[in-house]
Design a binder for these strands. Sequence first.
DNA 1: AAGTAATACTACGCGCGAGTAGGTTAGGCG
DNA 2: CGCCTAACCTACTCGCGCGTAGTATTACTT
Lengths: 230, 230
Amino acid sequence: MRPDPDDHEASPRPRSRRLPRSVRERQILDAAVEVYAARGFHLASMDEISEVAGISKPMIYAYLGSKEELFVACIQREATRLIEAISTAVDPEVGPDEQLWRGLRVFFDYVQRNRASWVLLHRQAPAGGEPFAAEFGQWRERAMVLIASLLARATEGAAQPMQPQQMEPFAASLVGAAESLLDWWVEHPEHTADGLAMRLMNLAWMGFGDLVEGRSWSPGGDASGCTAFD
Amino acid sequence: MRPDPDDHEASPRPRSRRLPRSVRERQILDAAVEVYAARGFHLASMDEISEVAGISKPMIYAYLGSKEELFVACIQREATRLIEAISTAVDPEVGPDEQLWRGLRVFFDYVQRNRASWVLLHRQAPAGGEPFAAEFGQWRERAMVLIASLLARATEGAAQPMQPQQMEPFAASLVGAAESLLDWWVEHPEHTADGLAMRLMNLAWMGFGDLVEGRSWSPGGDASGCTAFD
DNA sequence: AAGTAATACTACGCGCGAGTAGGTTAGGCG
DNA sequence: CGCCTAACCTACTCGCGCGTAGTATTACTT
């Protein structure tokens, strides 16, 4: 029948009737995130979303608008969820390294527990047309700026303190590394979230520390030039 | 049914005629890469591809098959191009660091010169359905294994040499960091390919060197544990 | 010069899925 | 107890775009 193996609660769906709008909107968004993540925006059909949500199609249009608007609503909700999860875990009182470490841990943990949410944000949103890429880009940008300022704060006591703007390429690299590592994790589930987060934290923090303190690599044999930050 | 049989050669049809199959296939693939990259698989129409290619639609079906097959052909050609560009730049005679550096340089350079190719491989291929993701995954896997063995070779002289398999998460992180940095680059074109490649090389190589030599970070203050590699 | 195969086009069938028209029932409230 | 609104449905329309039937034209071979 349906290629969906996790069809929990298939038969006894008395399709609870007359629920308030807010509850239905939640159900619809839940279903939409799941289907969009599994199939991608274009292959996802409103009929399937309505079926998974346990409601008929016109209600989706009445409550959340067109297919595009529904997709944007999904991106917004899931991006908010992710960023808030990380934000609340990062205590501004502790040192930058500890903040980064906690952020990474929660990030990996979130993805482990919310695969569909992550696939939607990372795989589907950036592809599939300009409007979605732009929408997602804003959220990504916020995360970048946050991390960049974190890294900049970490250089405050060093010989050469950095501006958050100068840290942006490093922040981009770090985020990309985390994303890629998460993808790799899918095919190597024997590793733990904390283990991988630790690996990445080490790689990033140690390399970053070297650069801040002036140790660097340059082509044609090691030297202690200052080209790392241009 | 030609309109105006006596109208000797109007003007606006340079559409070169009767070209051999191999040439047409090249033109079609060029057009397809461009359109698929710009619009994504689903929004791209065969009509637009045929128009850009300067040929009619049935020829595409005759030469390259369905829309899906054409997309796969694009992925294969562009992935081959990219991997070959990097492979030829990496001289197995020089040290691992120099190999990695050259690979990164060529990688950044390739993306700069072949935006459409890169967008196709990085943005469009992983989204849009299983068949394409699988196809692309094979190529990505090859690159990963290559880099992992490179990193492993770099640890040969160290206190604790590593197996290529153990290096996979680091390779994944490195590739992801490079990809993300390339995305960031699009919105900050004032940077040069070499400059960004250098930043990433430094971050990765220095951090990696620390870990190989046993220096590591751990939560709750620095310590010299050995948890980085589990 | 005639035959053949490769190159090329115009114009259409047809399925799929976004979005809607129009009608029905439940529950809150006087 | 009847009225009104919000929740909810079935059953359509209609356009878009993949893929193809059928045909024409050029180049190479003998």
